[in-house]
Design a protein around this nucleic acid. Sequence first.
DNA 1: GCCAGTATGTATGAAAGTATGCAGTCGCCG
DNA 2: CGGCGACTGCATACTTTCATACATACTGGC
Lengths: 284, 284
Amino acid sequence: MTSSLATTDSVYERLTNARLSPAQRRIARYIIDHRASAAFLTSQSIASQVGVSQPSVSRFASALGYLSFSEFKRALQAWAQSDVSALTRTQTRTSPLSEAIGTEIANLRWLSQSAALEEQIARVGAAIMSSDRLPVIGLRISRSFAQHFAYLGSKVRSGISVIDRSDTEAKEHLERMISEGATWCLAFLLPRYPREACDLVRFARQSGLKVAVLSDESFAAVGLETDELITVRLGTGLLFDTSAAMDVMTSALLHAMADSRPNLSQEGLEQFERYATELDVFEA
Amino acid sequence: MTSSLATTDSVYERLTNARLSPAQRRIARYIIDHRASAAFLTSQSIASQVGVSQPSVSRFASALGYLSFSEFKRALQAWAQSDVSALTRTQTRTSPLSEAIGTEIANLRWLSQSAALEEQIARVGAAIMSSDRLPVIGLRISRSFAQHFAYLGSKVRSGISVIDRSDTEAKEHLERMISEGATWCLAFLLPRYPREACDLVRFARQSGLKVAVLSDESFAAVGLETDELITVRLGTGLLFDTSAAMDVMTSALLHAMADSRPNLSQEGLEQFERYATELDVFEA
DNA sequence: GCCAGTATGTATGAAAGTATGCAGTCGCCG
DNA sequence: CGGCGACTGCATACTTTCATACATACTGGC
């Protein structure tokens, strides 16, 4: 009876529902993140990976309701298995959501086929890293992208600031950054291309800044001059556009930035870690 | 030297080339036919499946040139592993970027295959649409997601506001929204789960709000109670995590919200269009 | 038929892996 | 401050799994 329960309930379900101790949470975390490989490790090696004792792993399995660690491992293997076999299964698209996901998959695929992209990202990353200050422009829907970039970017380098408006105050801000040593700026410019954002980009270039723009394919139609233009495809299946590719490219750009100045970036990241530990910022 | 040979040569090559006795041939046959599962069985159970003794299996491994059955099993697992990952891989991955894109494609695929998801999104969309006010929680990295959601969400319904801090002022804000009719709130809660954000979610629930959380898989390990939990997988190939699936789910949720109250949403969108045209907000 | 060589199962000890009693630590409540 | 309960690591007993010695069975050459 008990063992039949073990096979019917999903491992993941148990992991989410069970009441776990701190050490057990860390184990759960590790297992979820490494399920493919964790499914075949011994309690011993999981323990050492996570940094707890072997008995803790053993107890963890029973806390989840399994009779033994071995039984848990079997369930885990079945889970990991179903996980990969899901990949092989092609299914018919019916709903808008799966349509949308399908489109985004195609968009990402297109991205990975784009040959010159890799090199361009590296080039742009190095370029904006070389600027003493880095204004990041993003208005309306693009504001959140600019802020996302700036939040992470600030862990890699200093002097990043978001410009999410287009009034005289914003222009003043931009000019001040130029006088402080900004040579490049980065603009997120997604449909439907706010006129004000375009104006701001023009203003920046007139002021002598080089501009790197992250946008989508149809941006070309706007006819705005840029120094670097990275384009992605957006997903259009749902009420509002989805921007999975933009998310990936943002991260890729950050990666390239860090790559171009390993020391500087490493320092920033370590500092953040120290600070996070000190102030006990995160769970687990 | 021997062990390096063991890892370089493919298992399959050895299976076909080695000179084997009748019983060993049967074992080989079984292993080739069931490699996915055989890779994790004990010598004992392989033996009983094939109908030979356990030492035969043990000897079989050394006949193939492995130092021990354990080493053979590891090689087998690696083989089975590469076998399934070959399914996902169409081209050779070399750079971190194309790795990362590949991962995100897998993440999206996993999403589209998740059966209950569609229904859950619809349910959550309708639920948060029914709340007279809608606080959206997002701290640190999740702030931009919350803002993205709120920016678009405000075109679909009114009364959305972002809570991107966790001080008394934020709690005051939350309580005011409750008194104004909020019954649900939405929280973006991405790794590494800020403690403050978790606290805020607990506070919200204690204050009587239902909480829908958008997070990633390992959130389970945080052990936070929620009323609805939507999980995606993040991409981990680059310096910072990518969140293509989160972007899609955010949009899907907005879509579901609009679907649950077509009139209300339509009205909001039209109003935005009128306003945009009037003020000449966009290019083209 | 006998012998050498090969093949295979049984028995057994060693090693690896897992579970549990016990004690130390920490936080909480009276 | 002291007792209590939860948590966790250590030591250890127990279980499973693996490798090897030995015995038995089969094969082909003589």
